[in-house]
């Protein structure tokens, strides 16, 4: 692994900026810097968001697990619990539909010129994150640790070779996307 590069702070800031530039370019080209496209997904008539997310996940999965097998990458799966991931996920969902952007796509929306995203949404996200930081000491020992996941990834949970999960997962994603297209969605 490129440990020297990973610990070089200046290079990492430049790499972060460059990665974001490509990511933002792709999000804008994909149409997901637009409120109308994101709400169209949540109202289940425009599946652009899921098509992008699932094809990114399938592509990413194949490459990242291969790179890991070659010793060129390591995984960083987030810890989680029912209390954190499910409850937090549902709160996030309410915000997702009310705002019509998520933290990545709102940044792309700002780049496209959306002032509701810049003036309303960005300020709201920063405020919401700050409120969470203030409540964190009370939430952490309580609901956030309810039903903690001991195994962080499915291959660990099922105690199988990672490829026994990667290959079926990619196949299911491909089949789902094929089904969406065949329905004209």
């Amino acid at each position: 692994m490129l440990t020297k590069l990973h610990t070089n702070k200046g290079s990492q800031l430049v790499l972060g900026l460059a990665t974001g530039f490509v990511f933002g370019f792709l999000l804008e080209k994909g149409g997901v810097a637009r409120y109308d496209v994101i709400i169209g997904q949540l109202l289940l008539y425009d599946f652009t968001v899921l098509k992008i997310m699932l094809s990114a996940a399938a592509t990413g999965m194949l490459g990242v697990y291969l790179l890991r097998g070659l010793g060129l990458a390591q995984l960083h799966p987030k810890p989680g619990s029912w209390g954190a991931s499910a409850v937090g996920g549902l709160i996030f969902g309410l915000g997702f539909a009310t705002l019509g952007y998520c933290p990545g796509t709102i940044s792309a929306a700002v780049g496209q010129g959306w002032l509701d995203a810049l003036v309303g949404g960005l300020a709201g996200i920063i405020l919401g994150a700050g409120i969470f930081a203030a409540l964190y000491p009370r939430l952490k020992p309580g609901i956030l640790s309810k039903g903690e996941f001991k195994n962080r990834t499915y291959p660990e949970l099922f105690k199988v070779n990672p490829w026994a999960v990667v290959i079926p997962a990619v196949a299911i994603i491909a089949a789902f996307l094929y089904w969406l297209e065949s329905r004209g969605l």
Binding site: A56, H76, G80, V87, G88, G89, L94, G95, C102, L122
Partner: peptide
């Protein structure tokens, strides 16, 4: 909406990118 989104993202420990793409691709 932003307040709910920012609050929920930190509660869940990630967003549509960190969980939705990067986490799912790691099979987390």
């Amino acid at each position: 909406g932003g307040v709910l989104l920012g609050f929920g993202a930190r509660w869940a420990g990630g967003c549509t990118s960190g969980h939705g793409i990067s986490g799912t691709l790691q099979l987390a």
